[in-house]
Amino acid sequence: MLLQVRGLHVNLPDQGERLHAVRGIDLDVAEGETLCLVGESGCGKSMTALALMQLLPRGAQLRSDRLHLGETDLSALPERKLSQLRGRRMSMIFQEPMTALNPVFTIGDQLRTVYRRHTGASAREAQARAIEMLESVGLTNASLRLGQYPHQLSGGLRQRVLIAMALMCEPEMLICDEPTTALDVTTQAQILRILKDAQTARKMGMVFITHDLGVVARVADRVAVMYAGRIVEQGDRASVLRTPAHPYTKGLIASVPRPEGAQPGTRRLASIPGNVPAFHREDARCPFLSRCPARMDVCGAVPPPLRQVPTGQVVSCHLSLDLLEPVPA
């Protein structure tokens, strides 16, 4: 397994208390595989990404039973070793390409620096590599672009530059945190294609974080659904999206407006009442408890078991297996 995570916890300072943002999650990503981490705001998906990169904000605490990239134990590495690893074996792409690029350096400066730092290449080699990478993400006039500053590029172009930068050293693992959320829809499709093509060509593992189930359907091999710091359902794309088992996953999928040819303005969407809770204390009970339409007495008393349902995915829920079993569409 390329990336192996067991029992990952992250907590953050929050107005004098500790906010438990990630509460014991397990993830596996194989070579060439895309795992989509999906959930709504505040579910802990971005904190998970930062924890994988060991880039958590100051004051955050990370605890894990296992956090391995290949044979390397990430939790045991000193910061010096980590900074050698980031950008070389594992890279990250952020949602907002403007804040992820340094506004006072040219695109070329930033791309060359990454490459030279990790490989010790000459300036000339780094320049050639930067041009090659910009072309591979579909930028025309790459040598001209290298002399430009981030503010001279549109959001879509900036995101391509970030992808090129992340891939400069051919990492084994790419972590993408909502890489297309700030972009227009047509640009989103182009960027997703570039990412998937780059991944296939390199057999790279990818953790793709998004709140958009439509994007999940297009890019994921496997899906992990996060809610309030926990993974409530995890499995193959098709089993999770077509035959969701956890009440939260079902509700989330049903609330997406989708083409159905009905007269507009006539159909009500399914929605999940209430809001995502925040956890300041350890609480092993089901995080969806307060909003679940299928809540039972046992849910308030005993932590939910992890079980595999007949369609293959693993679900954390008290409902009996026959109730969990999805109705075929």
């Binding site: 047509t186 499709a189 998937k196 958009d212 439509g214």
Partner: peptide, 24 residues
């Protein structure tokens, strides 16, 4: 193009090529 760039959770045919040329 706009219609084809909206992804529904029900379609898992990979990321489509919209055929859009150039940049905005």
């Amino acid at each position: 193009v706009l219609r084809d760039s909206v992804f529904s959770p029900d379609d898992d045919g990979g990321v489509p090529d919209l055929g859009l040329r150039g940049n905005f």
